[in-house]
Amino acid sequence: MSKTKLKLSGVRKAFGSNHVLNGVDLEVESGKSLVVIGGSGTGKSVMLKCVLGLLQPDSGSIKVDGQETVGLSANDRGEVMRKFGMLFQGGALFDSMTVWENVAFGLIQGRGMARNEAQAIAIEKITAVGLSADVGNLYPAEISGGMQKRVGLARVVATAPEIIFFDEPTTGLDPIMADVINDLIVDQVNDLGATALSITHDMASARKIADYVAMIHEGQIVWHGKVGDLDHSGNEYVDQFIHGRADGPITRRAA
């Protein structure tokens, strides 16, 4: 077993009476890719935001390289943040900036790199995700959703993070484009030797980018294992989810 990069234990988070995370335990090995699957609204995005420090968990521990990150001071949090990269569910591109400025943003504003130097890296990353260099001068509103995902990916890898989080990287894309994005994710993560934690409900995507899979249900991890074991997990939640059956232990609350 290689060393643990990221470890969550007993993470809880509630919004008022809405208990979203009920003690999440999760571990990701260095250089591996873990995909968390689970239905809409099960708290996948909330879990990522807790790890990123965008939300404060109510209790529990989140360790990065063995260092506790819950309750860190703003300065130390900044240090940890430099290890992270996040691809947001909606892309979250800065619409007041051109595509290349978006990609170079973390380098220029976050790391204080000179503009020319950052621009060169940005263009390189833009072509690496399969876009032509001229796209760099367009604004996010002027490009398609698929292109936005690519730009988002380029922005994430530009700062060479050690841990990358992907929040539903393929939702809203056609199956072919989704597959292209999956390939890009695998390539880019391997290039960087990064650790990846992704969340998705797209099983094709999960099978492609995962080394390990975990299933979240009602704010808890109900199964985790190797991606190869997905089809014979013996877990009824996983079975129901990957086959998309309406009846089973996962019931839709009639709300």
Partner: peptide, 21 residues
């Protein structure tokens, strides 16, 4: 709008403090 489209969260993950920026 930046909050709703997660651009503020994106700032933070790119090591830029939204209060400063």
């Amino acid at each position: 709008t930046m909050r709703v489209t997660e651009q503020i969260d994106a700032l933070t993950t790119l090591s830029v403090n939204p209060f400063k920026y």
